[in-house]
Design a protein around this nucleic acid. Structure first.
Length: 774
DNA sequence: CATTTAAAAGTTTTT
DNA sequence: CTTTTAAATG
């Protein structure tokens, strides 16, 4: 492939412009080739936002001769950055690899690594994730004797985070504090910042906030970057917060070539400090800003687009936009009513298979929900029916306990001041150092003005310090930890991360300890550790050296979407927030109910309610061809009562003409749900007992009543679920005990009365499901 | 004194 | 229905 970057002849120029004209519509072309100066691209959902951003960079490089290192592109996830880079490499050639494309967090981390020392901190900091920060807040709350029940550590940590993103340092926060809660937060905040500095650690917010301090207090550093970055391009601008806004303003203050792309209707991170006004006020902020509106949608059918637009039109605080499409009308948006969440899950599972029969693959379909807790019921049902699925988000790989434990060792070895990580691994794996010993160790360290690390490493079991009353098992444990840590510390800068991790895992004997547990969870953990070893082993940093510092940084900035490999024949499940920026041919949104979507705590606040509406809008606009919205009449939460009350107000905002309603309110046919009996195990026994319970009242929540099997549209996969009773013309009655494959290729194992187990293709028609008689 | 076991309480969204 | 906190055990 010829690289555009080297060819600057007239012929190449003309060819490139031709390519652009062909690849882009008029508005997109305008945005891509827009002049220097501030540029606001208001890009509606599915209007080719990423495309514009990518082509604009290519245009700047190829046509305007902007050197690659003088461009800064900021995206929302690492994955988006990676994809943009791949695309740019195709367009411009391999040199693009050195371009600064990344998230705010990763780009600023890079800057801080170079310059943080001028602020009196160290450049070799570690990054605390939210779990680490939370542990720190908890510890401080205990030290300050602030009740953790009255104000949860999560709350306080949230308040601190918000303060930081609003650029309030502890002093300013204290001055503005009103009321007992804010005073408490102020105290914790003070100590929290002090601890971070002492531990040589930065939290996520620091990565955004410290560059601002750096730039403001050291104009020479600011000058390096603001003169270097001739063009700055920012994706998802509607979700930037105050700190991000301020830092961008500083970085763009010299050349003023700031191109921001976003959609105010898709701003969904207010709770994280995102300020809608950043995008709404861009034009007044930069009076000379050019504005381009991308209103043509290339993604959804007109029915879906119309439905979504009608919903979001109810928001007041927005820029007026009219999205249009040349796509066909398409299927109507479908609403489904279910009795409860189990019924909802069954109906979704049914619909998924119906659409599989209609030619969509599982990978084409995604189920979106408001809160993570909703995934459980779906998972149960999908597992039960043998539908392969994949969850995006939830617990991230690098946040799993066993992984974080191992990484904590590396962090401590790299940065001996990292007390939070050290405390974490003090007794992991169990080595006899409990609460009491830990407390004594703390006291001993502070009495002797030793860092915790030195207290541990310097511990000599032959001559234990007199003022450290640790003996016996705890003493031996402490000694072995000290040995291990100094062993690690000696190698941390020399050895490749893979080799060191391997040595560490062996030294800890984690695998054998877990093997002895002989539980499913332990097996999963072993799997995870093996995966970590593979990852570290294969790791090559930017210079191919396998530096541990670089590895740890990369790992802590991984986003939820980054981790998931898309493609493959899996049904995808994720929260609405996670779905931002993605698209699928078929989208289900479940739990479209008052109290859930909109979330109950948003009901009394106009702005919060609008954000919920935007969230719903984002979900709807992910769909290319089919959109299915479902709600239930009885949703239970935990064991305590109902949590949502009927269809969401947002559903009523969709025009009737693009809707199709299905699924009757079947509530009356269903038995009232029993209150949870304590001790009634769910996972294993419920599955078999559930169908019995329901069928005893002539119905089954496995949809055998709500869905009409006799209409023969029901795919066999649906009927031949695990545990279903079936009849075979020769062998008689049996029970489905296993399933292999999926869809057309599904085969099921059936155990018959004589104990024999036989395998049948599900679509052979030999097996007939029978309703269970009692 | 550490670990296991039982009871109690709390659940949005995430870089 | 999970996660955290308190009491019992080894």
């Amino acid at each position: 492939m010829s690289s555009l970057i080297n060819g600057s002849g007239d012929a190449d120029t003309r060819r490139f412009l031709e390519t652009l004209k062909k690849a882009l519509n008029e508005k997109q072309y305008e945005a891509v080739t827009g002049d220097e100066g501030p540029l606001l691209v208001l890009a509606g959902a599915g209007s080719g936002k990423t495309r514009v951003l990518t082509y604009r960079i290519a245009y700047l490089v190829a046509m305007r001769g902007v050197p690659i290192h003088r461009i800064l592109a900021v995206t929302f996830t690492n994955k988006a950055a990676g994809e943009m880079k791949e695309r740019l490499i195709e367009l411009l050639g391999d040199d693009v690899r050195d371009m600064w494309v990344g998230t705010f967090h990763s780009i600023y981390a890079r800057i801080l690594r170079r310059h943080l020392d001028v602020l009196g901190m160290r450049n070799d900091f570690v990054i605390y994730d939210s779990d680490d920060s939370l542990r720190l807040v908890k510890r401080i709350q205990k030290e300050l004797e602030i009740s953790t029940t009255e104000h949860t550590p999560q709350q306080i940590r949230g308040s601190i985070s918000r303060a930081k993103n609003d650029l309030l340092d502890p002093e300013r926060f204290s001055q503005n504090a009103r009321g007992p809660y804010q005073y408490a937060v102020a105290d914790v905040y003070h100590r929290y910042e002090k601890q971070l500095r002492e531990n040589n650690a930065l939290d996520f917010d620091d990565l955004l906030v410290l560059p601002i301090r750096l730039f403001r207090e050291h104009s020479d550093v600011l000058d390096i970057y603001r003169s270097r970055f001739l063009h700055i391009l920012v994706d998802e601008y509607q979700d930037t917060n105050r700190a991000q806004y301020e830092s961008l303003t500083l970085l763009a203050s010299l050349h003023r070539n700031l191109c921001v792309v976003g959609d105010d209707d898709q701003s969904i991170y207010r709770w994280r400090g995102a300020r809608l006004r950043n995008i709404l006020d861009f034009e007044s902020e930069y009076r000379d800003a050019a504005v381009v509106r991308l209103e043509r949608n290339y993604r959804s059918t007109s029915n879906i687009l119309k439905a979504a637009s009608s919903v979001v039109a109810n928001n007041v605080g927005r820029k007026e936009k009219t999205l249009w499409t040349e796509k066909e009308t398409g299927s109507p948006v479908k609403t489904m009513v279910a009795y409860d969440e189990t019924d909802e899950a069954s109906q979704i599972a049914y619909k998924v298979q119906e659409l599989c029969a209609a030619g969509f693959s599982l990978g084409d379909q995604v189920v979106l929900y408001r809160i993570n807790a909703q995934s459980r019921t779906l998972e149960d049902t999908l597992t039960h029916q043998g539908i392969p699925y994949r969850i995006v988000g939830g617990l991230r790989f690098y946040e799993r306990k066993e992984i974080k434990d191992i990484l904590a060792y590396l962090k401590v070895a790299l940065n001996p001041r990292d007390d939070i990580s050290l405390i974490r691994i003090l007794n992991v794996p169990p080595r006899g150092i409990g609460d009491t010993s830990r407390q004594r160790l703390f006291e001993y360290a502070s009495r002797n003005k030793l860092s915790l690390f030195n207290a541990v490493v310097g511990y000599d079991p032959e001559h234990p310090p007199e003022d450290l009353a640790i003996r016996g098992k705890a003493a031996r444990g402490l000694a072995s930890l000290g040995e291990l840590l100094s062993w690690l510390h000696d190698r941390i800068t020399e050895v490749h991360v893979g080799e060191l991790t391997k040595g560490l895992v062996e030294e800890l004997h984690i695998i054998s300890i877990l093997e002895e547990e002989r539980s499913i969870e332990a097996e999963g953990r072993i799997e995870n550790i093996r995966e970590l070893l593979t990852a570290t082993n294969a790791y090559q940093g930017s210079d191919g050296s396998g530096s541990i510092q670089e590895f740890l940084e990369e790992v802590s900035l991984i986003t939820q979407v980054d981790e998931t490999e898309f493609g493959g024949d899996f049904l995808t499940l994720m929260t609405l927030h996670c779905a931002k920026g993605l698209e699928f041919p078929v989208v289900y949104i479940v739990g479209v109910e008052e109290g859930l979507l909109p979330w109950h705590r948003a009901l009394n606040d106009m702005e919060e309610l609008e954000e919920e509406r935007r969230l719903f809008y984002v979900g709807m606009t992910r769909a290319r061809e089919r959109l299915i919205l479902s709600y239930v009449t009885n949703r239970y939460q935990g064991g305590f009562g109902m949590m949502s009350r009927g269809a969401s107000r947002f559903l009523k905002e969709i025009p009737q003409e693009c809707l199709e309603t299905s699924g009757s309110p079947v509530g009356s046919y269903f038995p009232k749900r029993r209150p949870y009996a304590p001790g009634a195990r769910r996972r294993s026994t419920q599955k078999s007992s559930r169908s019995k319970t329901h069928s005893s009242s002539t119905t089954s929540s496995d949809s055998s009543v709500t869905l009409d099997y006799s209409s023969s549209q029901v795919p066999p996969t649906m009927i031949l679920a695990m545990g279903k009773r079936v009849e075979h013309p020769i062998h008689g009655q049996g029970l489905v005990v296993a399933r292999h494959g999926f869809g057309e290729s599904l085969e099921v194992d059936v155990r018959f009365a004589d104990g024999s187990i036989l395998r049948f293709p599900a679509n052979s028609g030999e097996l007939r499901p029978i309703s269970i008689e009692y």
